[in-house]
Design a binder for these strands. Structure first.
Lengths: 236, 236
DNA sequence: TGCTCATTTTATGTCGACAAATAAAATACA
DNA sequence: TGTATTTTATTTGTCGACATAAAATGAGCA
């Protein structure tokens, strides 16, 4: 992948400018190519993406709505940094969303939802088999996003997507301490979840989702704790 | 209250323009002064609020992030209309948020949270005693928002606020069929909730919040059903 | 009269520029 | 040398204008 986004100097359809900027920035933020806390220079960005400041600003406002950037009045907007103080709130919320979306998917899914979910699961399994940790994070997100779509509740879905993105950033941040032994266990759990959804077993779906979420939360916690110990030992 | 917003032709501090426009539009949308589905003319708005189109657009983007307006590409942005198809999803989500925020408030509230909550409850009781239905809706929102703030989970809080606002619009929409006998019952339930939070009784808080939410959902459902019958009879 | 296509019109998306506010630098002073 | 104050510079917030896309209008024709 080239590090510079694909662009042709002044050829872009009307109306796609903002979307383009939004997508580029969003991707760079989630992939930590833009570090948390780093300031965003509007002029520099407008030059890099060869557009005026107006689409940049609009994209930034949207990203601020997503919580991905923070706008300081009259000062630079910065990439929202990951606060380790509210970790508990994050884990609590994402666990609940895992459960609720899976439950509702078992209840509300329609005929063509399952193929979509299975397709995401196939990509996930492929990433795990290929020992592609970053790919696993992304495909895991897509898998659960597909389930959330089948749950047919846009309120839960939007919060869940936001939390999954936040989790993706966190995972990337602490990726260095990943042991790289990607657990086949997650693949199995995903399969069980699919089966429960297909059987429309709401209670089982809930229990599986809860266990799955606890798994992920525990591993993430361990990752962060390990990294923190390294930080501390480096500080001293 | 004057129907035109307070403004002085060209005197406004730098940076407050967007916030001002955002607040005015938000209030007008939530109070149904701007009807759901009605288009928003940027030029007309810029003249009415005596500002340029740029702050208007930025405010509209923010409102779109809140789900209060919907932007149709290359076409007018319209006030998001209340879809009665997803009512089930709405009630499901708001009930869960009532429960979760109350639970967590019981668990996480600090010393100065309760006075704030009690202040909102006093306003609520006053609105109920004064048979001020619209005031009751607004103060009820603020009461539960205060509880959500004490719950110390920004993810739940933001979703809950969004749902409460959406509910406020729905209530206003069907206000005509309100019986105007404002139930003292809600005041009592609020008092019980406060007591449970203060006692840090998580299970009781959850049960009370659930019952309270069911009350509100049931009444709202009845209101809508009654109004719908009227609609149907008018159509025939 | 009714339908299709060209034209006009209206409103949005984007642009470059100016003004104000904050940060940075430079100067004055103790 | 260190601190306070003025000056400069950088960056954001706002503005008016132009370009373009979709809707509204009107002309042409069957």
């Amino acid at each position: 992948m080239p590090t510079t986004p694909p662009r042709k100097p002044t050829e872009r359809k009307r109306g796609s400018g903002v979307q383009f900027v939004y997508n580029v920035l969003r991707d760079e933020i989630l992939s930590l190519k833009l570090a948390p806390g780093s300031p965003i220079d509007e002029v520099q960005l407008s030059q890099r993406l060869s557009t005026s400041r107006t689409p940049i600003r609009e994209a930034l406002v949207r990203l601020a709505g997503d919580g991905l950037v923070t706008t300081l009045p009259n000062r630079s907007t910065v990439v929202t940094n990951i606060d380790l103080l509210n970790l508990h709130a994050f884990f609590d919320a994402i666990t609940l969303m895992y459960r609720v979306t899976t439950r509702l998917a078992a209840q509300n899914h329609r005929a063509d939802d399952l193929p979509a979910i299975r397709a995401r699961q196939a990509e996930f399994a492929q990433a795990v088999n290929g020992q592609d940790a970053l790919g696993m994070i992304a495909t895991n997100r897509d898998f659960h996003a597909a389930i959330a779509a089948a749950a047919r509740n846009p309120y839960y879905e939007s919060l869940f997507l936001r939390l999954l993105d936040e989790g993706r950033r966190m995972m990337r941040l602490y990726y260095s301490s990943f042991n790289d032994k990607l657990p086949q266990r997650y693949v199995v759990e995903h399969e069980e979840i699919i089966a429960a959804i297909e059987a429309r077993d709401i209670d089982l779906s809930d229990r599986l989702a809860r266990a799955h979420a606890d798994q992920i939360v525990t591993q993430t916690r361990n990752m962060i704790a390990a990294e923190r110990r390294v930080d501390i030992s480096l500080e001293i």
